[in-house]
Design a protein around this nucleic acid. Sequence first.
DNA 1: TACAAGCGCCTTTTT
DNA 2: GGCGCTTGTA
Length: 763
Amino acid sequence: MPPSSLTSAPVLPELEELLNEPQRDAVAHKDGPLMVFAGAGSGKTRVITFRIANLLACHRVPPYRILAVTFTNKAANEMRSRLEHLVGADVTRDLWVGTFHATCARLLRRYHEVVGLARDFVIYDDADQRALMNRVLKALRIDEKRFPPKMLLSMIHGYKQQGLGPSEAPQNDPFEKVAAQAYEAFQKHLLTANAVDFDDLILHAVRVAEARESIAGAELRSRFRYVLVDEFQDANPIQYRLVKALASEHHNLCVVGDDDQSIYRWRGADVRIIRGFQRDFADATTVKLEENYRSSSNIVRAALGVIQPSRERVPKELFTSNPPGEPIRVIAARDERDEAAFVVTTVRQALEHGVEPRQIAIFYRIHAQSRVLEEALRSENVPYQIIGGTRFFDRAEIKDLLAYLRVLANPRSDVDLLRIINVPARGIGQASVDRIVATANRLDKSVYDVLQQHLDACGLGSSPAKRVLSFRGLLEHLRDRSQDLGPRDLAEQVIDATGYATALQRENTPEADARLENLREMLGSLQDYEDEAEASGEPPTLEGYLERVALVSDIDQLDDGGRVSMMTVHAAKGLEFDIVLVTGVEEDLFPYRSNSSLLDPGDVEEERRLGYVALTRARKFLFVSHAAVRTIFGTTRYCRPSRFLTDIPPDVVEDTLSPGLSSARIRVDVTAELASQRARSHDLGAETNRLPRAEPGRYVERDIVDAEPSDDVPLERGTRVKHVKFGEGQVESVETTVSPPVAVVFFPGWGKKRIVATFLRPA
DNA sequence: TACAAGCGCCTTTTT
DNA sequence: GGCGCTTGTA
């Protein structure tokens, strides 16, 4: 359809307030490649949903010809529900809205034979992959010490993201040769098991879509008249290839994103893809949304201060018409407990002033920080919920039950079968399992086939063989039942007939009770699935449930508004709150640096973007805290305030002391130090991100007591102090970024001296 | 075979 | 500090 035929159509009124006229035309009516740069808080999701709604409502594009891809289920659900509001559920039902993986899975159920899979293939998660890789290494006699499975899997992951098959994998050194060998065997086993991993979902779909000579390929390339991608800055190369292929016939590829919010480089996202889109599609229209409707202008300015030193960003001028609002509060705390005390006090005050808990969020860089915060909140009876963390479907008992169900759906899935062959314990030991697996490898059969037809070839003793036979009988029984039972009832049968429930009841411990409770919760999740399937007019099937579970990270967090939220900054992307508290804003924690590795400039850039994401989540109040001493992973370290703090313009900041520091017998004036650090960095203009610089081995591991000043006067600029050798002097400045803290003191007759604070006494 | 003590490691996380 | 994996012992 030529662009001109679209432009005469009307536009949904809601789009008017968000965009100026040329932007509106482009988003609502324009065909061809379209790229929308949407700054934080600028209404990104609104733009993409309105484009879809406009295509449906004003241009009469059939819904099944539109594909909208997201990265998370949450984003997909949200988009779908917004569209239901705009154009009605009966229209949106036929839209293709989903995550990359769910969309590919759906396509592959249709085109499975093109890539050699059966229709009922199963999806392996990370743990399944590890189990499979261990088996592959054993069979190939590869030394796990020299070639850690984790590293091989990550190399394979890399190849798949580049679209390289086993035969195309590089083989330049011995390591790569082993990796290529493992890759080939790994894929062979997946195929035998009729299984795919997450990367394969995309990769297989790309293979189908790119196949020049195939009917399926041609069909797929012309299937979608409009393809839209949300959060495009998170795309990895293979995902980009996929959407390019899917849009190759109609050229209506619309991508929406913000390179400043690209925070998933470590999992393959390549920010250069969004930055290079205009180069790849010379005829693309670019729209920039630069007005932030979310945050106070102080918050916007603070966030801009953090992102601006970034070197390679696409130029954008984020602005807001909102009033300045409250200053950003930067809190210097003594240690992580003191920081947590500050957080709790602040949250309580907000709640007492009538702020709803759902409007308050506490962020941290890594999960390990959450425990101390949790304890503090719990002791003060502040209701909280943790978003993310250990996932329901990662629990052992849930994975066990799922493994049973997956074996029933697809008996060839060896990883699942081996997981449950002796769970609950039924006397089939490692030795027996090894023999069965060796036989399967030798005959090139699945383990299930070996149990069925080649048990005598395993060379088992008579009593192990008897037990294996009884396990085989159990599986047969359950497979029979799976014919006439719904997924939920079948799962209940599994829990009973396998003796799993009995084994847990016999344990009679709180842990076992919790596991039973989790199993019941999973039955609830099966029930939900059945109800939903019936409501949408589809028959509930075991396969349907398994696919859903494989592609959903968690049972949807019940979003009960009565709790304060805690989460990592990564989990916070896409959310917004009136009050945000960002904790642990210290060098080596945020930006994060692991014990071993140095920060390369690319890492710092990504951490900087992460900082930008954190700050832009706040609407009205923003608190940023750092501790002078932090115990994490069992060791205590001295911490300097993050370089990002010095990038926040000083005039939007108000420095604050934590409860611990303001009541300390001696006050080491951290805030004054921070202020002077900030003043210095601003003298240097745009180079602010250079200060202070990360260096290896900076942390001193020492007993925490050393950090606590032994004196009882506030030690800050102007304080009169006495020193054993130099006599009386006056403090000029205090450095708390070194440990123990050091003061620069002017002693008449001696001049300026740097003195460790503990050697000073009040004059 | 099963359980317990010991070692080593440590982001972020969806799907 | 805590989890997962390995090794050692009953």
